[in-house]
Design a protein around this nucleic acid. Structure first.
Length: 693
DNA sequence: CTAGGGTTAG
């Protein structure tokens, strides 16, 4: 993992002092024009802008329009719009540059606004304007604007241009009207390959696969793209065999053909097949890497994904914003904060575009790695915000029990015009349940229906059961399940069972467990939970009985696994694991810790041990729980002031929770433990969850 | 025209 640090430095070709050269105006203009073709920092844009004005290049629309375009590739459309707003009589080229800039940065709404501005100022659009605007219309599916534009195109005589007609075909298909598109298609006398391919792709977008195939067969002008389109189609509709057949028999392949096929395997989770093709392909580009990395992330093979990212760094392909969006969730799941922070710095160092996707994944990563402050920092600095980004921030705050701040984000959404969706409310309800705000939760549950017209899904009922149950309203929670409009899932019952554990209600737990064991008889978590409820109530016989039942049904206990990151290396520990190279030291350290804490009054809480064994052995099993191994390792290998951050795949058990509290006190260490449902921040003998988890 | 990206209940 240390190799990740070997990133190549990226120096910017244009430094501001270069602008003071004494070259003649003519060559400066050429130089200026060419230098406007690569991305610039805001300061560089400003300097260039001043330079253009000073040398009167405003007269030359090519240079000025290029500046506006340069703003867009520099991710500075807001700067472009400021410049644009100051121009009294923009030339057509400036409008076009603005429309193109917005369209290419995904600001389709703004692109269409510029188009409307042109219409209201009676500026005549040209054959450059139409396809670009049509692209934005397609993205937004604004069929009304599209049809109006269609009429305009016919009036202005641009309808003779294949390129404009093709854009119209694409627009109609994107708006779900393939038949209207086909009418245009059939009337075009000089159809080229792109035109044919657009119509084929249009059918695919509308789900008309057989029509697409039919047209492909009829097309007299097939090129690689036509084949690629079809290969991609079969990958998307799950017919990987046919896709592969086409891939194998196509007359020539380009990099896209390979990527499409690899992506097909990636989509169905066939990492190995994807990997084989990846290794076979003659040349790889950034997309090839991204597809494969994403495939591993989706298969939850996070370490493999990170390993690929590392390999990519030493290859000749530079990672881009899509790459980091694929890699960051791997850090999030592993709880690898250092690595996540490193990638964040890497993004800045390499001028990778910080778009809304990157920011969302960063917020999620910081949250899941226990650093709410950094998550908040990314949120506040994000230039573009959307519903996803806000939802993620709410979810992070909820996870850490910071309900009021989560509500604050929700208020921000409402005032900023970001439409809350069903996920928003999952976050809000979760925030309420972690701090026991029952009334507020009920308020949000009502609000989502009454004010936002969102129908609660089973997920929302799950949150509500959790909210009521945790707060001790077990019967109300039970009633809610009875009255749900849909069948309760195992997760809903699971929420109630957890609540029974917190409040020690064995009777209800038994009823709930019946449903659970019926729904998912092979899931070990339910047996463990019920067994712990029995043990806690002193009913050990029943706990043992349950253990037997597990054995009979062949249910394997999922091994507990905790990971801790030290020096960019993620160290994984399983319960009783002896695989770590420093195993001996770790076990010695753990023994010392137990001794010391026992002297301070620690009594192992053996009810947490499920195993049907004698007392001593129970204690041994407890001592070797994965999170204890991770803590011992953390104490051994980190500086006194470094907080120990641990990620666990299961719920923390009672004993480990007590143990952690005592370690935080007697070893004077901050500890942040993420279990499968929330965070525990241990400090000076207590936990942020107030023993309510 | 064709390949890659973000949030979600125990």
């Amino acid at each position: 993992m240390a190799c990740l640090l070997a990133a190549s430095p990226y120096t910017f070709p244009l430094q501001p002092h270069n602008l003071d050269s004494n070259s003649t105006e003519k060559s400066t203009e050429e130089w200026l024009f060419s230098s406007l073709k690569s991305p610039k920092t805001p300061t560089q844009l400003k300097t260039l802008h001043a330079h253009i004005i000073k040398t009167n290049f405003t007269q030359n629309d090519l240079v000025f329009g290029q500046l506006l375009l340069c703003c867009s590739i520099s991710n500075s459309m807001h700067y472009a719009s400021r410049i644009f707003a100051k121009i009294h009589h923009p030339k057509l080229f400036f409008y076009n540059a603005m429309v193109k800039g917005y369209s290419e940065t995904g600001a389709h709404q703004e692109a269409i606004q510029i188009y409307s501005l042109m219409r209201s100022r009676s500026v005549f659009c040209d054959s450059f304007t139409f396809p670009v605007v049509l692209r934005s219309i397609s993205s937004l599916g604004m069929i009304g604007v599209g049809e109006e534009l269609h009429g305009l195109v016919m009036k202005t005589g641009f309808d003779a241009r294949v390129i404009v007609q093709t854009a119209l075909i694409d627009m109609y298909c994107a708006c779900g009207l393939p038949n209207s598109a086909r009418l245009i298609f059939d009337r075009i006398p000089d159809r080229d390959v792109i035109c044919w391919n657009t119509m084929i792709a249009g059918y695919i977008k509308c789900g008309k696969f057989s029509k697409a195939r039919e047209l492909f067969e009829r097309s007299p002008v097939k090129n690689v793209s036509s084949w690629n389109t079809l290969v991609d189609m079969y990958c998307k509709c799950g017919d990987i065999e046919i896709a592969r057949q086409l891939f194998d028999e196509m007359p020539e392949k380009d990099i896209i053909s390979w990527n499409a096929m690899i992506s097909g395997y990636a989509k169905i989770g066939e990492c190995e097949a994807a990997r084989r093709l990846f290794e076979q392909m003659p040349k790889r580009n950034v997309v090839s890497w991204n597809v494969l990395i994403t495939c591993y992330v989706h298969k939850r093979q996070f370490s493999d994904a990170l390993e690929l990212f590392r390999m990519m760094q030493v290859s000749d392909v530079k990672p881009n914003e899509v790459t980091v969006v694929s890699v960051i969730p791997a850090c999030a799941h592993l709880g690898a904060l250092d690595l996540g922070q490193w990638i964040h710095a890497y993004i800045n160092r390499n001028r990778i575009k910080m778009d809304v996707y990157v920011n969302t994944s960063l917020i999620d990563m910081y949250g899941k790695c226990g650093s709410v402050e950094e998550a908040r920092g990314v949120f506040d600095n994000a230039k573009v915000k959307d519903t996803f980004l806000c939802n993620t921030m709410i979810e992070v705050l909820a996870m850490h029990g910071r309900a009021e701040e989560a509500f604050g984000i929700f208020m921000y959404m409402r005032s900023g015009g970001f439409k809350p969706n069903d996920v928003t409310f999952i976050g809000l309800l979760k925030a309420c349940s972690h701090v026991g705000m029952v009334d507020t939760g009920v308020k949000y549950f009502r609000m989502m229906k009454e004010e936002f017209g969102l129908t609660p899904k089973v997920e929302h009922f799950g949150c509500m059961v959790d909210l009521l149950g945790r707060a001790g309203h077990l019967q109300e929670a039970r009633e809610l399940i009875k009255n749900m409009p849909m069948e309760p899932t195992s997760i809903v019952w699971g929420a109630l069972l957890s609540a029974c554990r917190i409040h020690g209600n064995v009777k209800l737990a038994e009823e709930v467990a019946l449903h659970l064991l019926d729904l998912e008889p092979q899931s070990c978590g339910n047996y463990v939970l019920l067994s712990n409820i029995y043990s806690k109530a002193g009913r050990f016989d029943e706990a043992v009985e349950l253990r037997k039942m597990m054995k009979e049904k062949g249910v394997k206990k999922k091994p507990g696994c905790s990971s801790i990151e030290v020096n960019h290396v993620v160290n994984e520990f399983f319960a009783g694991d002896r695989a770590h190279p420093q195993c001996k030291e770790i076990y010695e350290q753990l023994e010392k810790m137990v001794k010391r804490l026992k002297a301070e009054g620690y009594v192992p809480c053996i009810t947490s041990a499920l195993h049907d064994v004698d007392m001593d052995e129970k204690e041994q099993t407890l001592v070797h729980h994965s999170e204890k191994l991770a803590v011992a390792f953390g104490l051994l290998s980190t500086d006194h002031r470094t907080p120990i951050r641990i990620v666990k795949n299961l719920r923390v058990c009672d004993d480990c929770h007590i143990f952690m509290k005592m370690v935080s006190k007697y070893y004077d260490r901050q500890m942040v433990v993420r279990d499968c449902s929330r965070f525990h921040h241990f400090s000076d003998g207590s936990c942020s969850c107030s023993d309510y988890w």
